[in-house]
């Protein structure tokens, strides 16, 4: 637990500095990318479903797998679409 707390705080620092460097023009893609990677809870959900010894727990896990997948796939889909728009003009210019 304390080890993970250290990891958490250090990761928050990394997050702070990395996000600080993001150009304001890409704040919307930043939100959808971070949205997508916060879908990482799907790992926990997969684990819970896989090792559940009780049907209720398994259902909870499965619902979480489903919800986190919407979040994750959707977030990446929106990011890809947005970043595609930002790309297209360099060629024309």
């Amino acid at each position: 637990m304390s080890e993970q707390l250290i990891i958490f705080i250090l990761a928050a620092f990394i997050g702070y500095f990395v996000v600080r460097g993001v150009t304001p023009a890409l704040y919307s893609p930043l939100m959808s990318v971070s949205n997508a990677i916060s879908g990482i809870v799907v790992l926990g959900a997969i684990g819970m479903t896989g090792f559940a010894e009780n049907i209720f727990v398994m259902v909870c896990g499965l619902i979480a797998v489903f919800l986190a997948s919407v979040n994750m796939f959707g977030g990446f889909a929106v990011s890809v679409r947005m970043l595609e728009m930002f790309k297209s003009k360099r060629k024309k210019q």
């Binding site: 958490f8 990761a11 928050a12 916060s38 809870v41």
Partner: peptide, 20 residues
């Protein structure tokens, strides 16, 4: 769940959202 990757990713996303 004791899953480090969730802790790291969550911390980064959380910090990012607060900066915005």
């Amino acid at each position: 769940l004791g899953q480090t990757l969730l802790v790291i990713t969550g911390a980064i996303v959380g910090a990012g959202g607060m900066i915005l």
